[in-house]
Design a binder for these strands. Structure first.
Lengths: 159, 159
DNA sequence: CTCCCACTTCAAGTAGACTTGAAGTCAAGC
DNA sequence: GCTTGACTTCAAGTCTACTTGAAGTGGGAG
């Protein structure tokens, strides 16, 4: 709301929860909730009040980004907090690789919806539910059982 | 579960809710819920029981896909059910274009997370929260206020 | 000194998307 | 005719991710 040059702020590297909230676009209540959920590390305190490093805004952005992608907070906590010494590195990598696979699938899914929507945009169908582009893949000249691209992507990538 | 050649099924083009459920990977309860929510058109009935065309599986896939992308059912209902005669076509197009923009932003967001995760995969940071790849963009030689790529994408595309 | 404001904790409420449970119906098989 | 199983409706419960409210605290401005 205000862009005043930090009149009552201690230092430029330290943010109050309110300042972090406006820096990140999240509400203070959400930030506290993330802390409770173990997603955000517990910050230092000055006379009881939370003090954050400015970097924390980036972290919050990443969290927001991930939740936006449908990732549960428990997974995000796993990604952010998993420590990795030499022993745990393999576990960490498997975790990240799994997430990368999920994200790749999500992108594929999004592109599928994008395609259907784009093709049906100028179609003359009465509603999207009856649009030929939604069902056409099935009708393609393919033997019997196997389903095709969009349908296939859904089955294979998402379920 | 079973791949029996439809012993007690009326016709091959007509599916019971249970059959549609196993064809689509959703639960029957979810299918009924979608109908209640106005996302799925009300099917015909034979002696009180729902009968679906096989195409409905595709529709369910699309719905599942969209919810997976974080799209609320109300939006999906809008996309699927909006009728478009010559008058309503413009409204329909604007609706679709809006959704296409959202999906494009989502894909960009997903690619941002993908990048951070990928870059930090082999990084030596102790936890992802402290990984340099998460914060490095800020540090790049850019005048003062404006934020950069990943951070920027988050701010610009998502909030 | 008092006021105000941003902060604190803790409990409870909310919204969306389903699931689950109870009680009843229908058609088929024995 | 009776049982069985998949279906029906409707109400209530669940889970996640927050938000909201109540009651209290700390510190700077007037």
């Amino acid at each position: 709301m205000n862009t005043k040059p930090a009149p009552s702020t201690p230092a430029s590297t330290s943010l109050s929860i309110g300042e972090l909230a406006s820096a990140s676009g999240l509400r203070a209540s959400a930030i506290r909730y993330y802390e409770d959920a173990g997603v955000l590390p517990k910050p230092s305190r000055i006379s009881g009040q939370r003090r954050y490093h400015a970097d924390t805004a980036d972290l919050l952005m990443l969290i927001r980004f991930c939740t936006r992608l449908g990732m549960p907070l428990s997974d995000i906590r796993g990604l952010l907090a998993t420590p990795r010494g030499p022993r745990a590195k393999e576990h960490w990598r498997r975790l990240v690789d799994g997430k990368l696979d999920e994200i790749a699938a999500l992108i594929k899914a999004a592109q599928g919806v994008e395609r259907v929507l784009h093709e049906s945009r100028d179609c003359d169908c009465v509603t999207l539910a009856s649009c030929r582009f939604l069902h056409e893949e099935r009708a393609k000249p393919r033997p019997s059982r196997s389903r095709l691209s969009f349908h296939d992507a859904l089955q294979a990538e998402l379920i």
